[in-house]
């Protein structure tokens, strides 16, 4: 019977080094097609610098709880760059790999095709981390913002935000049949999400109904969680649970519906 269980096993048999070589090639591809890196990092950084240079934006405002508009924009821009990378530069290659038959070809090797997904996540997560570190550093060094007071809580909030948005991005990659369908779905999800993050207008100044809805959207939950941990509080459980919920539900959907060909 032992042989029987052996033949049933699904454990990946590929050497562990294979994963490293996939990550290396995915990183090369990201580097050689830098549009993603430039957009994901550059747009958020550009907006940060512009907002930082507008004098009115640095005036503390009672409506914003004593913070300046620039203060409130920092976590929004962090979430914005996470969303750009997770929605545009994570699923894009995966959908095109599927269209080109790259995933199908991989599925005839000892390497499980989901390793490509995992490698993409590793590469994009590194890119995101570097982008966020850059945004935080520039805010502190050039615009006099104090360093995050509760870095552990902030890392947790950011990690949950990344997990939620990766899961949504992958679910869209799983459900979209073509690269152009994926792009359409991304845009349809991304822009409302950015609205609830407060990118266009501060959420604090919107009606209470919209604020309530916002707290149940991924970025509407992530922005205050990151902001609060920056000024030293541990964020309440609600936004963290919302993010974890998105990560789990959409992670499951992505796993359940991902098509390799």
């Amino acid at each position: 019977m032992t042989t029987l269980t052996l033949t049933r096993s699904r454990a990946p048999r590929a050497p562990a080094a294979a994963f490293g070589s996939i990550v290396l090639n995915e990183a090369r591809l990201a580097w050689r097609q830098p549009a993603g890196m430039i957009a994901g990092t550059g747009i958020a950084l550009l907006l940060l610098v512009i907002f930082g240079e507008v004098p009115a934006f640095s005036q503390p405002s009672g409506q914003l709880g004593g913070y300046s508009p620039f203060d409130t924009y920092i976590p929004i821009l962090m979430c914005f760059s996470i969303a750009l990378i997770a929605f545009i530069y994570l699923p894009g290659p995966l959908v095109s790999y599927r269209e080109l038959g790259i995933l199908r070809r991989l599925s005839t090797t000892p390497v499980p095709a989901y390793w490509v997904l995992a490698a993409q996540i590793v590469v994009q997560a590194c890119l995101m981390t570097a982008t966020l570190a850059l945004l935080v550093t520039v805010s502190i060094v050039f615009f006099g913002i104090s360093a995050p007071a509760n870095p552990a809580a902030m890392v947790l909030a950011i990690a949950l935000c990344m997990a939620a948005l990766f899961a949504i991005g992958l679910a869209i990659a799983a459900l979209a049949r073509t690269a152009s369908a994926a792009r359409g779905l991304m845009a349809a999800v991304l822009y409302p999400m950015l609205f609830f993050a407060g990118l266009y207008y501060p959420v604090q100044l919107m009606g209470s109904v919209i604020q309530d809805i916002s707290h149940f959207t991924p970025l509407g939950a992530a922005v205050p969680a990151i902001g609060e941990s920056w000024v030293g509080q541990f964020p309440p459980a609600q936004p963290l649970l919302v993010l974890a919920g998105y990560a789990l539900v959409f992670g499951y959907l992505a796993k359940r519906f991902f098509r390799w060909e």
């Binding site: 048999r13 290659p93 790999y97 080109l100 038959g101 790259i102 199908r104 000892p110």
Partner: peptide
Amino acid sequence: HEITGVQLQSSAFPSK
């Protein structure tokens, strides 16, 4: 997958 090597009729690889 360990003991077979496959060349599919249509397969592409990342162009870059």
